[in-house]
Amino acid sequence: MTGKSRNHVRSLRHIFGAPLIIALLSLVGLVSALAGDGAADWLSWAALLVPPLAVVWAMRKHRR
């Protein structure tokens, strides 16, 4: 990460930073398709694609 040792203790902000962004994007995705069609649908699909993409990213970058 930032050159610190792998064992340093993370802050709550660090631990929940990525999960919070993913959760907010999921909520945007859940609501936007309710609000409209067309662009709102695309936004919804893109936002709800983030959770699966995060898993793919972790499987490629963080397996050890």
């Binding site: 340093h8 631990i15 963080h62 397996r63």
Partner: peptide, 17 residues
């Protein structure tokens, strides 16, 4: 429980081996 578990781990860590 995710918070104490991830105290020393990066987001997305998958220890598979």
């Amino acid at each position: 429980l995710y918070a104490p578990f991830m105290r020393k781990l990066d987001f997305g860590t998958l220890r598979v081996s």
